[in-house]
């Protein structure tokens, strides 16, 4: 009985992996081998196959660099390359059930949230997932440093952003990526720009990988749940449950990472440093000659001073 269950488990998982990956355009290595007609190295005919040995294939596909499936290598229609995206357009967080668009404390995402859809049902719609960061150094009058920092915060808040960190001379805010460029233009009007740098980090590939891994793991979880329902003995049930727990934990991790990336993409980081303009250098005129000391034909008058007073030796 136990052997039969194990075989079902393996076959079910392999089938799930195949169908899940085909839908998303990504194929774990084991599945690819099956598709090519090669005899699977997976021990489908082996009577001692276990859940853990099957899941190791899934694990490898999801974590190991060598096991990672590159979408471009797939026989399925090649996805479009991520289109270059202007800083003002944030890519939405896609196809992550329960995670649509990250929302900041201000509650304004800068993008309409997309409805959650099952991952497998939606074809991959590659869009550049870019995390924008900007550093701006401003120079203002000394008394305007603090008000300028206040204005930066107000501007960010008005755009739906929020304050991240503030010191006496700098401020870090997050603004909706859709208004990133606008926020830079606004901040640059607050003072004389000494330095400006903008950077974008493309996390599209990582995001897609995570999505694929997540889809696969969800499929595995569904199958495991089915097996659990059909488990004939307590031992089988426990074994399947352990595996189910591990897969669920991994799903949680991936979902967290996707949420994190989504939030970073949705809100751009703007750091503004404000310096006080150096005070004007006072050009010294010719030195003022010392006042002429009065002198009198009086002996004691010339001896008035601390030297005589404090000399207590005499």
């Amino acid at each position: 009985m136990r052997r039969n269950v194990m075989v079902w488990v393996w076959m079910g998982l392999a089938a799930t992996a195949w169908s899940g990956c085909a839908a998303s355009g990504a194929y774990p290595r084991a599945s690819m081998a099956m598709q090519a007609g090669a005899p699977p190295s997976a021990p489908a005919m082996e009577p001692s196959v276990s859940v853990s040995s099957v899941s190791s294939v899934e694990e490898g596909a999801s974590t190991g660099e060598s096991e990672r499936v590159d979408v471009a290598e797939q026989p399925a229609p090649a996805p479009q390359a991520p289109a270059p995206q202007a800083p003002g357009r944030a890519a939405p967080v896609r196809n992550l059930p329960g995670v649509t668009q990250a929302t900041g404390p201000a509650g304004n995402t800068g993008q309409p949230a997309q409805p959650a859809q099952p991952a497998a049902a939606t074809p991959a719609t590659p869009a550049a997932m870019l995390i924008y960061t900007a550093d701006i150094d401003l120079q203002t009058a000394r008394e305007a440093v603090t008000p300028t920092l206040d204005r930066v915060i107000e501007a960010a808040t008005a755009m739906g952003g929020y304050l991240l960190r503030r010191t006496d001379t700098s401020v870090q805010v997050r603004v909706p990526s859709a208004r990133f460029r606008e926020s830079l233009r606004t901040v640059e009007e607050f003072g004389e720009v000494l330095h400006r740098s903008v950077a974008a980090q493309d996390v599209s590939e990582e995001y897609r990988d995570l999505e694929v891994r997540l889809q696969n793991l969800r499929a595995v979880r569904r199958r495991l749940e089915e097996f659990l329902a059909r488990a004939g003995s307590m031992t089988d049930a426990l074994q399947v449950e352990r595996e189910l727990e591990r897969v669920t934990r991994e799903i949680d991790t991936l979902e967290g990472r996707l949420r994190f990336l989504g939030a970073r993409v949705a809100f751009s980081l703007v750091t503004v440093n404000v310096r006080a303009r150096p005070e004007g250098v006072i050009v010294a005129g010719p030195p003022i000659p010392p006042r002429r000391a009065i002198d009198l034909p009086v002996e004691w008058f010339r001896r008035v001073g601390l030297e005589r007073l404090l000399d207590t030796r005499e």
Partner: peptide
């Protein structure tokens, strides 16, 4: 006079 002298010093 005393004040002026001390200032000058």
């Amino acid at each position: 006079a005393v004040s002026e002298r001390l200032r000058a010093q």
